[in-house]
Amino acid sequence: MKNCKCSHQTSDLSLISNVLDEYKNKPGSLITVLQKAQEIYGYLPTDVIYHIAQEMDTTPAEVMGVATFYTQFRLKPVGKYLIMLCQGTACHVNGSERIESAICQRLGISDGDTTDDGMFSLKNVACLGCCSLSPVMMINGETYGSLTPQKAIEIIDGIYAKEAGK
């Protein structure tokens, strides 16, 4: 089983050797390992999943099952800017659906997708916990509250303008 014939990706597997060394003998740490792997690679490349399965003495099916169960894990790279749009109850009541429509229309993508230029990814999230600022979105850790559709578009356009100016 050592010689993986996986030809789809060639990730640098040495990057996670420390993580694997630390956790491979700790039962039940698959989720933690995947979290660390995602921190390293930005997402979970297929060859990394396969490598983790080998090292953790489990099967790729098992790892894939876990990786696709939890919303935190991504199997595809994300854009430079990750928009996390809150879909919590408070945000919903205050119109998050309209914000989503506006963003989707502006970027030409839907939830979970990345723009062709690799700039933006959109992800609906359950609740960012800033209910009093609703509706809220978070872009790369920065929170934007009390959104309107127009304000959301302006924020995105602002980022595009900043990128163009670089």
């Binding site: 089983m1 993986c4 014939k5 996986c6 789809h8 297929t46 396969y50 099967t59 790729p60």
Partner: peptide, 13 residues
């Protein structure tokens, strides 16, 4: 349910 994913060596398991 997936009969394994992308690696043929695993499918042949």
């Amino acid at each position: 349910i997936r009969p394994e994913f992308r690696d043929s060596s695993v499918i042949s398991g």
